[in-house]
Design a binder for these strands. Structure first.
Lengths: 198, 198
DNA sequence: CCGCTACTATGACGGCTGTCATAGAGGGTG
DNA sequence: CACCCTCTATGACAGCCGTCATAGTAGCGG
């Protein structure tokens, strides 16, 4: 990974996100993060005076920004954008990873939400912000594709919900079946002008 | 809760599921489970010689059976069953809980899948079995409602995926918005005979 | 009463966790 | 050189974890 050029601080946030999405928050130790990032352990306290909570929160925020950027890149590379094609790109990212790298990891934002180590009020806010940051570019793209402004945000939420759920099921089953199913069943709906109440 | 009548063993499995869906697997200590279940600590080893892994797995299996039973009950209480009405009942269960009891807890199967404490090969299998046990009655119900046999299982997977994803988002946002959105957007599709490939 | 089985009580063990205190490089700047 | 600020090194701390060893109780069949 092209990561060595970045500073130790950024590497630790990145590594934290990687390990959290694999093992969960509680099972990810600060010593593991330091080792994975090849960062000096002595700097942990210096860069993250808020302790583990701060590091986890920044990892979640990073994941939110990453997901948003990915959406923008999908759209930029798309010759003829359509809702179903955007959804396909989002789902494909995960089927590709699972096929090539195995089912070890999931979404770090989900992990941080589910695996709150008791308190962690701020982590919930960070996760909510990450979902919002992800939702925003999707909704914007849908609007540009002609989806009514009122429904764009709702459809974006549906897309992300279905994707996240399918990711979890795929990990449990160690099979991309759920991801492909969701894509196949939801795609046509996204393109059609089906009204919400029939 | 009407739990005291059951034996200590069953209480511990139940309590484990409750705590796991709130705090995650790693953050749920065996001592917490024993206390929550008001069970004798000395019996832990006797009933679960496989240790924490066995207890977690049984809690996940229990959750799968519970979800399946819930679906059957929803259908039994439904005067005129339809796909969207079944989905509404499934979603409503969560909006009701979140409105009345807060956003502390999620789905234990998701927690066990995401928060695998490293190894836990068997827990993944238990989670996959739980999702399958949940999918089965939903697919069967859809078939009885006239959905083609080939699509029933796929639609069931879509329903569960969207629901699970929305649960996670709702917990993060501490708002039932995502659950209501998913219900509103997906309901009409489930009832309509929209073909997969337009 | 004996013996057997099912279940419970208690305490300790090593290991890992996040946090913290203390000290020390390194490099600019006055 | 002296100073300060940024960053790093190291080790120790209390606390919790899952696991295990040992002992003990209750109840039943013989």
């Amino acid at each position: 990974m092209t990561v060595s050029r970045r500073g130790p601080r950024e590497r630790m946030v990145f590594s934290a996100a990687q390990l959290i999405r694999r093992d969960g928050v509680a099972a990810t130790g600060l010593r593991d993060v330091v080792e994975h990032a090849q960062a000096p352990r002595g700097s942990l306290r210096h860069y993250f005076p808020g302790g583990k909570e701060q590091l986890v929160n920044e990892a979640v925020e990073w994941a939110g920004r990453y997901a948003a950027k990915r959406v923008d890149r999908f759209l930029a590379e798309m010759p003829e954008p359509s809702p179903s094609r955007l959804f396909e790109a989002m789902v494909r990212q995960w089927t590709d990873e699972y096929r090539s790298a195995g089912f070890a990891a999931g979404c770090p934002v989900v992990a941080a939400t589910v695996d709150r180590a008791g308190s962690a009020e701020s982590t919930g806010q960070a996760a909510a912000a990450a979902f919002a940051a992800w939702n925003r570019p999707v909704a914007r793209a849908l609007t540009q594709m002609g989806v009514p402004a009122g429904r764009a945000a709702s459809l974006a939420t549906l897309m992300i919900s279905a994707l996240e759920g399918a990711i979890v099921i795929a990990r449990a089953e160690r099979d991309v079946r759920a991801l492909e199913t969701v894509l196949r069943e939801l795609g046509p709906l996204l393109d059609s002008g089906v009204a919400p109440r029939d």
